[in-house]
Design a protein around this nucleic acid. Structure first.
Lengths: 300, 300
DNA sequence: AGCTATCCATGAGTTTTAATCAACTATTGC
DNA sequence: GCAATAGTTGATTAAAACTCATGGATAGCT
């Protein structure tokens, strides 16, 4: 393969000019000035050491050699365009698979999924549940949305979307027994928790200046759940006080199904979109942008 | 045609890498460093927003999308290469038609034509006679070799090869009657001339400080010929003193068939190779280069 | 005819692109 | 565990491509 092709951009200029029959039209198609195309054509003439166009009035027509070249070149570029368009369709048609913990999926993403599809229809977002702690790079996952704590994975790209806030929530009935001015009245109720977030209640206690011994007693009175989702259902049902990411209870707080008497605190964790290397960074960033907007609306 | 193709050089790098299975090999074929190819591939990944190659050990293999692209691209580039190669063959196979006055052709070029074909076989030089004063741009003429005087034609390109020198020549027998020290002994003989070069003898007379009245008398005693070629044959036959471009009698002087007792003088004319626009400048220049060398040898 | 609009070519200068070099990471085979 | 091979990447340099402005030639219009 010692075949020295001429500069490809010159070939493209030639092909467009030959097809459209005019330098100006070709320049228009290629989104450059006619001067640029004219130069490219000249460089091709020099490469082949023969004129490919001949002046005809104020326009140009193909020379005999020009016709020879265009015969093959037209098809070649047609194929080039088709190949690239085909790949583009394949990439854009492929679903964007977004992995996400079940609780976040159920309580935040699913209610907004319809709007997401409307906003980014060409992404063709498919959601899958992924509750594993470390979102191992499974094949077929385009991105993972989750609360994660530093240090962040080396591999791929992590887009930080918001700071995690957690809050203690209870049903409205139960919350009537608490004093918003006295965080320690929390201990009047039973504490609900999940095994997957053992540090949530201690962090809350520290932030509110509560006695850890009392906390442990209250925890013993309460109940653990396998999953955040059940935890929140238990809180709604009035079984006790749950500790949960504020984002996941936002809708319930607005509707009054839950109450958060003592506000919320920030944790070291962040809601992140993790884009594994080998996925589609551009599509991922567009999703991140939309997520960012949706989060702002949710929190406003 | 709103189809925005990716940068073509990136496509070429991809095609070569996919075909050869290695960045380094592709870089080698494209005569660039592997770093350059690596960057081009990265830019394609970004354009399509998907990886086209996947790391495999210390090498790369095509991803699924990469395979899709290469399927079409391989053929497209094959066609591109074929088209350009076909045109190159067509251009190089076409004969290079060199026009030339008959006398120059007969007395200088034809004796060297075999060497010309050996030196530049791929040019496939064909010679044609063209005795018209102004070498009108006839179709099919790749270049014209002739003595021409300024001003030179605007159109096309004129390559100056040597200054024209003319000299008075006679057969050896006749020349015995002349004195090399006394240019005016010229008038002992009959002067031979051509209608196509009326200014030759007057120019000679002025340069040698001869009396123009005597010149006219001598001219009247002599004879005119239609063509330089016959003029020179007449001089060889001893009919009189001819005036001719030195280049055309060089071989005869060397062989002793003719003698130039008073040397030669320069004229404003130049031996030029005229390349009409719309021909092959590169081929023309190669011919000019060879002609220049051949002229040097002839005159040496 | 003269005027004007269109089309292409080109010199000068600027921006963008692509290349090199050299350092660095990862994998393989000895 | 060390050397060799393959690819990536930051910094810098070289080259290509583009724009702008100008000029020449042609065609159509009044």
């Amino acid at each position: 393969m010692q075949n020295s092709l001429p500069p490809l951009s010159a070939l493209r200029a030639f092909e467009a000019t030959a097809r459209l029959g005019s330098v100006t039209a070709a320049a228009n198609e290629l989104a450059v000035t006619h001067g640029a195309v004219s130069r490219q054509l000249k460089s091709l003439d020099e490469h082949f050491d023969t004129p490919l166009f001949i002046k005809a009035g104020r326009g140009l027509v193909l020379s005999r050699h020009g016709e020879t070249l265009q015969r093959g070149l037209g098809e070649a570029f047609e194929r080039l365009r088709n190949s690239c368009a085909a790949l583009k369709r394949e990439v854009e048609g492929a679903p964007f698979t977004l992995a996400c913990p079940g609780s976040l999926l159920a309580r935040w993403l699913i209610p907004r999924l319809d709007r997401l599809h409307q906003a980014l229809p060409e992404l063709n977002v498919q959601v899958v549940v992924s509750d594993s702690e470390q979102p191992g790079k499974q094949a077929g996952i385009s991105a993972t949305l989750a609360f994660i704590e530093p240090p962040w994975p080396e591999e791929g790209e992590v887009i930080e979307l918001m700071v995690e806030e957690i809050c203690a929530v209870a049903s409205a009935d139960l919350a009537a027994g608490f004093d918003p001015e006295r965080p320690d009245t929390l201990f009047n109720g039973a504490l609900l928790y999940t095994a997957s977030r053992p540090q949530a209640w201690p962090a809350w206690a520290r932030a509110q200046g509560l006695c850890e011994t009392q906390l442990e007693k209250a925890l013993a009175r309460g109940q653990g759940f396998d999953h955040l989702y059940y935890l929140m259902e238990a809180a709604v049902a009035g079984l006790g006080v749950a500790i949960a990411p504020r984002l996941l209870v936002e809708d319930d707080l607005k509707s009054g199904r839950l109450v958060a008497p003592w506000g919320s605190i920030q944790t070291p964790a962040r809601l992140c979109l993790w884009l594994p290397s080998g996925a589609s960074p551009h599509a991922g960033k567009r999703l991140a942008e939309w997520l960012g907007q949706a989060l702002n609306e949710a929190v406003r």
